[in-house]
């Protein structure tokens, strides 16, 4: 039995302890905003928050999550999330959309740590999030836009 919290709800699941968090979120909890892209922590589509820090769910065995708090794209809230979502929407960042949950998780994590990120900060924080549609120009712009809104 593994006990953990997702988006503020407690869960106790009897499950193979090696099962990646990604598949637990999707197959067991039907939280489908967290995407599968590579399964080997190369693309970032499965990024969630684990105790408030970004984490690739595809390489996180559920045993590692025991007693911990997971937040998925569906449960994200707070000023950084609101600013990022608004900036993303304002300039239509997404194309196919598959990677965007993960992009947003990383962008929020960056802004929670660095209030006015430079281009280099953005490159470093977002380096693990692949967008095959190459929406990178707008991702960068939206992060800057969100930072400006957060600064007030």
């Amino acid at each position: 039995m593994t006990s953990f919290r997702v988006n503020g709800r407690d869960h106790d699941l009897d499950i193979d302890p090696d099962t990646p968090l990604l598949w637990v979120l999707r197959d067991e909890l039907h939280l489908t905003g967290t995407k599968f892209g590579c399964g080997i922590a190369q693309c970032g589509a499965c990024t969630v928050m684990l105790d408030g820090m970004p984490r690739r769910a595809c390489v996180t065995p559920i045993s590692m999550v025991e007693g911990r708090e997971v937040t998925t794209i569906e449960g994200m809230e707070g000023p950084e999330t609101e600013a990022v979502r608004a900036a993303w929407t304002a300039i239509d960042v997404p194309q196919c959309g598959w990677c965007q949950s993960g992009q947003i998780m990383s962008a929020v994590a960056l802004l929670q740590a660095v209030s006015a990120p430079s281009d280099e900060d953005i490159d470093n924080a977002m380096a693990g999030n692949v967008c095959r549609c190459a929406t990178y120009i707008r991702i960068r712009q939206a992060i800057h836009d969100a930072a400006k809104v957060l600064e007030g």
Partner: peptide, 21 residues
Amino acid sequence: RPKLDTKAKTDGSAQFALDVY
């Protein structure tokens, strides 16, 4: 013109095949 599918692609609600249970 703003895109119609943007919002669902920023909150995890956009539905793809893998999301069907």
